[in-house]
């Protein structure tokens, strides 16, 4: 499903060059739930961003569904992300000015579908995360766990095949964290979604199919 080949990422300033990722190759199968672990600054998020086509590698290739994506234009990448990938972030990144339903609807805005259909899909996604009774609320009226559930609903509203989660439980206490983890596991099982999750939490990582460890930009496990 996702194939990374010899990915390198360098950050250059005038004086120094930092290697964020050093020749990472990774093959993620369809329906797999993979977690990425490592100390802070080891390149986990950079790796996830490159997988999610939010950032371009300095060298190497990203293939999703056998399609090489490294050289697509901004517009083509945007369309590809819209169709195939859903994102979940540690700090939720909800739009505070919009209601829960409008937030969940976001990826669908960039598809050619009617507003009725958008509302139907977004409501469905909110039902899956157990928030259908909160659709008229604003994010500021929700708890951290509820916010993350809205973010998950947003990630799955467009039925993407891939979900990329960057420390989705990082800002939550363990009970809420477990709740979120259960939702992700359920999505993986029931919807056959391919999930890549960056985490610091060993117990969360153990619940997934496979664990990749990074250290200073290199893959160590």
């Amino acid at each position: 499903m996702i194939r990374l080949e010899n990915i390198e990422k360098l950050y250059r300033t005038d004086t120094i060059e930092t290697i964020a990722l050093d020749r990472i190759s990774l093959n993620i199968e369809k329906g797999e739930f993979l977690s990425v672990m490592g100390p802070s600054g080891c390149g986990k998020s950079t790796l996830l961003n490159i997988m999610g086509l939010l950032d371009a590698p300095t060298k190497g290739e990203v293939k999703i569904d056998q399609q090489t994506l490294t050289h697509l234009s901004d517009k083509q990448l945007a369309r590809f992300r819209n169709q195939k990938i859903g994102f979940i972030f540690q700090s939720f990144h909800l739009i505070n000015d919009l209601r829960v339903l409008d937030n969940a609807e976001l990826p669908l805005l960039y598809r050619n579908i009617t507003s009725k259909e958008r509302i139907r899909l977004a409501t469905e996604a909110l039902e899956k995360v157990g928030l259908s009774n909160r659709i008229k609320h604003f994010p500021s009226q929700l708890s951290g766990g509820q916010k993350q559930r809205v973010a998950i609903a947003r990630a799955i509203a467009g039925n993407p095949e891939i979900i990329l989660a960057d420390e989705p439980t990082g800002n939550l206490d363990s009970a809420m964290g477990n709740e979120i983890m259960d939702i992700l596991l359920q999505l993986n099982r029931a919807e056959k979604a391919t999930i890549v999750m960056v985490t610091h939490d060993e117990t969360m990582a153990k619940k997934t199919h496979r664990l990749v460890r990074l250290f200073d930009g290199s893959q160590v496990q």
Binding site: G52, L54, P107
Partner: peptide, 16 residues
């Protein structure tokens, strides 16, 4: 900027 980032991530092109 967070909103812009999110919209881009979920498929909004720069033009949109």
């Amino acid at each position: 900027s967070s909103e812009i980032g999110i919209r881009k991530a979920f498929g909004a092109s720069s033009g949109t």
